[in-house]
Design a protein around this nucleic acid. Sequence first.
DNA 1: CTGTTAGCGCTTTCAG
DNA 2: CTGAAAGCGCTAACAG
Lengths: 351, 351
Amino acid sequence: MAGVDPGAALTAATVYAAHRGPVTLADVARAAGTSASTASRALNGRGYVSEDARARLLLAAERLGYVANASARTLKQKRSRVVGVVVSDLRNQFYADLAAGVGETLRAADYQMVLLSDNVESEREVMGARTFLAMRAAGVILTPVGREAASLLVRNGIDVVEVDRQLADAPCDAVVVDNARGAEEATSHLLDLGHRRVALLVPETDWTTDAGRLRGYRQAHAAAGVPVDERLVLSLREDAPDVEERIGRLLDEGRPTAIFAANNVLAEHAWRVLRRRELKLPHDVSLVGFDDVRWMEMVEPGITAVAQPTVELGRTAARLLLERAEGVTRPPRVECLPPELVVRGSTAPPA
Amino acid sequence: MAGVDPGAALTAATVYAAHRGPVTLADVARAAGTSASTASRALNGRGYVSEDARARLLLAAERLGYVANASARTLKQKRSRVVGVVVSDLRNQFYADLAAGVGETLRAADYQMVLLSDNVESEREVMGARTFLAMRAAGVILTPVGREAASLLVRNGIDVVEVDRQLADAPCDAVVVDNARGAEEATSHLLDLGHRRVALLVPETDWTTDAGRLRGYRQAHAAAGVPVDERLVLSLREDAPDVEERIGRLLDEGRPTAIFAANNVLAEHAWRVLRRRELKLPHDVSLVGFDDVRWMEMVEPGITAVAQPTVELGRTAARLLLERAEGVTRPPRVECLPPELVVRGSTAPPA
DNA sequence: CTGTTAGCGCTTTCAG
DNA sequence: CTGAAAGCGCTAACAG
């Protein structure tokens, strides 16, 4: 607080009042003895400006601490440098990493990320979409929960990239991982170890992620000639209060020798149930998770998991969006990134 | 992709062209047979509008899918509903949780969060601040790395809230945890167990967090009458490639019986070093971390940690900012939230 | 209660 | 190469 009277009710506004408003382009132009148009050209580097004028303007802008008003620019150009990003839950490492990848790429291209989290219901998602519409976003990246938001955006001329899962019926790019393949590898790994009763914990959604992982689970069984016992396929809402109870019941009634959890949240629930029951991994049960998050490598034994290139997923989504924002026109494209099975101590042949 | 010709180079822009630009307030007004001003009043609910006109306008807006242009509004009102948020690293659970708390509170108040991550150097932070200035942000919340950004913002009339640490000399609100107290409790816990050689791993910064934690560490020693062996205080850059090597050397040369890591990243590094050396927690060394992140409860034994109300930190910061955004004027306020020591298996009397 | 008017700050023709 | 002029879409006086 050096140099500030600590007693005064100083607010930013108070201090600021002394300066009577932000510096505008007109101020800079005046200071440099040119018109606003010339100032605009000089500061944005497009159009002809004499070396001399440019220098004077750059100097004046610098000296006055000029910062261009983004709203005025957006209003005129009908397009902002803001990209809307919607994720389901920032507190889930998967989405945080995704957002980090997006943010990193956007920043490098001098775009801003407006982040919405807690994207759990379609209605909220649509509200988010309206916000991005209002901002004339350069584009929107979302881990969708419904199809309406993408439709609304695309219909209004805003490019959309779906990440992680695809729901839209509107034409838009998407970046996903090969869920079926990842799940098949994970399941085959268990079957190859000799497991014949492999439980699947899968979220109760209509998402392509979960459908793909379920498909991979079945494919692996088919390939191994092992019939799927449907009682071992547990469809769960990960945020329901009774998730762990239901997993416990599955353990009791289904007698699986291995569990494949289709995402990191369900893997954590399963792990907690096993820990609480003092079941030993991998001796009593084997466990595989989809989405390799940090704790899986830290616990003992480590959890075998299907690793996703999560940050890269975000980067790719941002790249696709930026291409279009910079004017590239092409048919909708779906990038499918490969997952990778990381084998750790939580899987072994059944006892 | 139902209903869409998959061969055509369909872009959002193509589809959109058919509609010739977004619906404006004037369009709505025209459709309802009023002037734009009346439409504005009706749609924003301020000023007098007859029930009849309001109904017609609301209907027209709905029917046309009107979404107000945020730039035009911001340009006119000289203030947007965007709040800038700057965190150091979204991939660190601490910052992700912080951002989640902020985002949640902002959304509830119908403000948008523009998120910048990777805030590691002051220069970048200032660039971020300029962006927020350009957007005429309603305010900015930051985990600061330098003092310039906050100054620049406050000087330009944008309210700032510092979270986690305080660096600004400009007058602004702040939300922090009582670092000294948390560190003192953690250290006292170790000293009470009988440890006499407690190492401190602390980031090499000029941040109030780290200073506070160092202070707490010293206070605890003073209170217990145990002199601090300065060779046990290790100042580290958490992102340096040799962090773990240096921790290893400390183990060899300092012979600590306990380690207090001043944040979750350093705690993880320490934990990895101990694991690699096959040192047993808590038998060979006790470990305490500052900032209780998820893995600390999952590893075996669990890591004793100073838990921070991280999400609440974010919520509080957002609340403080929103107060000012809504017009409250008051002297800068610092909210100090209490941390809480969570004792787990990683701490025990020295062998 | 409603419409007219002006203008936020910027970019972009279009003349010069 | 430069400036004048128009206008992006909205809101806020102000007069009716």
